[in-house]
Nucleic acid binder design. Structure first.
Length: 355
DNA sequence: AACTCGGGGAC
DNA sequence: GTCCCAGAGTT
């Protein structure tokens, strides 16, 4: 059976070629779980420093569950997809309080935790507990697509089951931890999206895409939609040597993070006027623009922004929030304690070049 | 089933 | 500029 041979070659290749990664030096389910959460939709190189810092501060579920969400978000600042941090924080609290601090090894209990879906459950249960669950991520889909010439698009969620089924068939049930990591590692190092390194692949004779000269055509993929660009104006408001910041709502985009107040520039409106208008509408504060700081361009998943940032001076009014959930007047040295979106960090870097 | 949700590295 | 990454939750 060729599946047996594929598994054997894959595992031999993995044993020799696997990268040394922080989460491969432990068998602690919590640490492996944290790594998997950070790694979703995020590259290994990006995750490593975040993982090290996060584990140093939150070495087990209790310290994470007991921490303030603000501090957890601060450790996640810049990593993106902040719901991951909010869910992990909440899940750690559940593990701490309802499971005595032990990450559940049971599928149902583990899947019940917020932020734990099919992939993370399969990954943690296999890698940390040795359970035979096939982990199917983007790497795995790409490898399977080429190996078996699967015509369904890898980014079509409706076709996920097709890949899951194929993954279940190929899974090495006797060594699920090494097997899952081996397929993902092959996808990350050899069977990459563009210009795969088939010359050093351990499975060329088993790969239909390679044998048929179609490695460039696979995996199949649905075309991406174009994204709109929004014009934003934001105010860095000063008063008595303090800066005004507001906190975003708990859910949704950049949920729970802090930012400089602002909003969309209306059609035909100038950015400076929009800045003052948005500040008044969302905080009830009246201010005047003193100078233009910079324009920040930033790309999100479904849209882009071009944000004009103005330095403003307080005129009058008491804070009455409409939208934001909290506010602070902070000194320059205190700003670093609050988690900000990358776009606002760019503006902050322009304002205080040394920080 | 389609949308939402960050940021960055490779090309 | 485009692609896409160790995906999950919501509607």
């Amino acid at each position: 059976m060729s599946e047996t041979l594929i598994r054997k070659k894959l595992l031999t290749w993995y044993k020799k070629n696997q990268r040394v990664l922080p989460w491969r030096k432990t068998d602690d389910p919590y640490r492996i779980w944290v790594s998997e959460v950070m790694l979703q939709q995020t590259r290994v190189a990006t995750v490593i420093p975040y993982y090290e810092r996060f584990i140093r501060r939150f070495p087990e579920p209790e310290s994470l569950g007991a921490a303030d969400l603000q501090e957890v978000l601060k450790h996640w600042e810049g990593l993106g997809y902040y719901a991951r941090a909010r869910n992990l924080h909440k899940a750690a609290g559940i593990v701490w309080k309802e499971h005595g601090g032990a990450v559940p090894s049971d599928d149902k209990d583990f899947l019940r935790l917020p932020g734990v879906g099919e992939y993370i459950a399969a990954a943690v249960l296999s890698i940390a507990f040795g359970k035979p669950r096939a982990a199917v991520d983007g790497n795995v889909k790409r490898v399977l697509s080429r190996l078996f010439l699967i015509p369904e698009a890898v980014n079509d969620s409706a076709k996920h089951k097709k890949f899951k089924k194929q993954a279940d068939t190929l899974l090495d049930v006797s060594r699920p931890a090494a097997y899952n990591q081996a397929v993902m590692e092959l996808g990350a190092l050899i069977c990459v999206p563009r210009n795969p390194e088939c010359a050093v692949c351990p499975l060329p004779e088993h790969c239909r895409a390679f044998r048929e000269g179609k490695t460039d055509e696979y995996p199949k993929r649905k075309a991406a939609k174009s994204v709109p660009v929004y014009h934003i104006a934001a105010a860095i408001l000063f008063h008595n040597e303090k800066i005004f910041i507001v906190r975003r709502q708990e859910k949704g985009l950049l949920g729970g993070l802090w930012e400089f107040p602002g909003g969309k520039v209306k059609k035909g409106e100038n950015a400076q006027a929009a800045c003052i208008r948005e500040l008044r509408e969302k905080t009830a504060l009246r201010a005047e623009v003193q100078s233009y700081l910079c324009r920040v361009k930033h790309a999100y998943t479904h849209f882009k922004i071009e944000m004009d940032v103005f330095l403003c001076a307080y005129i009058s009014g008491a804070v009455l929030l409409k939208g934001p959930t909290d506010y602070r007047w902070v000194r320059k040295a205190e700003i670093r304690d609050y988690p900000f979106p990358k776009s606002h960090l760019k503006a902050l870097a322009r304002l205080f070049p040394a920080v």
